[in-house]
């Protein structure tokens, strides 16, 4: 078991009310499993990933990664097992470091010492890795990453997040801010790198077609609970229309999600 969540509860207090972002969520994932996560805005998807990454800590419940209980560890002390790509391309890189300096930052996940970050051997490895993104980034290794386009930056972020071969990869709508062509490209890069690295992957997406065609398991979150979980055969035979029908039957009146799904099926 590479990831195990047990009875996770997380609520936020806002003035005058408590928002239950996650209520009693349990989930376990085998090594190399690829799970897609869907759900409407505010369903708790990002909060779930935050809890795995350690950016937030659950009110109740336990988090295990690779057999270790990491519930009370802060994010930087479980970073070695967790890679993450955010929706916002600006968040995944440091804009005023060069492309190769960003890679240097990502390839080491423990204590930092006074060794030089950029050696000739490392540069060679990175040039290789960059050239496989097929975006000519290897020729721009010394450029500031702030000068890259959103798509290029997101591709770089995926490379950075997978470079240290973490146990778990968290993708939070990481292609949502990109145009369709770039989104497909970054998704393909992601699939390649995940396949090579053998990481357990949780991918949040708003695109139902993506959620259905990628991965081996699909999870639907709604109002902080796992409403639906399909895997294997059942998942591969599922259509977007089936999903919509399932939602209706469970009484989800999430207009945004349904609208999106219906549009997709029509189009």
């Amino acid at each position: 078991m590479s990831l195990k969540l047990e009875g996770i509860c997380k609520s936020f207090s806002l003035p005058g009310q408590r928002v239950h972002a996650l209520s009693n969520v349990s989930l376990s994932a085998d090594p190399e499993e690829f799970i897609t996560v869907i759900g409407s805005n505010g369903a708790g998807k990002s909060t779930l990933l935050d809890i795995v990454a350690g950016v937030r800590h659950p009110d109740k419940g336990r988090v295990q990664i690779a057999g270790r209980d990491v519930t009370s560890r802060p994010a930087h002390r479980r970073a070695r097992w967790v890679g993450r790509v955010f929706q916002d391309p600006l968040q995944g890189t440091v804009p005023d470091l060069t492309v190769e300096e960003n890679l240097a930052l990502a390839c080491k996940k423990g204590r930092r010492g006074l060794r030089f970050a950029l050696g000739r051997r490392r540069r060679h490895l990175w040039a290789d890795a960059l050239s496989r993104l097929d975006m000519s980034l290897e020729r721009r290794a010394q450029e500031l990453s702030g000068h890259l386009s959103g798509g290029e930056r997101q591709a770089l972020t995926v490379l950075m997040a997978t470079m240290a071969r973490p146990e778990i990869l968290l993708l939070d709508e990481h292609t949502a801010a990109l145009d369709p062509a770039n989104a497909d490209r970054v998704l393909r890069i992601t699939q390649d790198l995940v396949g090579e690295g053998g990481m357990t992957t949780l991918m949040v997406t708003h695109r139902m077609d993506q959620a259905l065609c990628l991965g081996s398991r699909l999870i639907m979150l709604h109002a902080g609970e796992i409403l639906l979980e399909v895997a294997g055969e059942a998942k591969s035979s599922l259509q977007v229309t089936d999903l919509v029908r399932l939602f209706h039957r469970r009484g989800v009146s999430d207009d945004a999600l349904l609208l999106e799904a219906t549009e997709k099926t029509r189009g």
Partner: peptide, 9 residues
């Protein structure tokens, strides 16, 4: 945030 995600405080 990124620094934290890559294992430094």
């Amino acid at each position: 945030r990124l620094v934290q995600a890559y294992g430094a405080d």
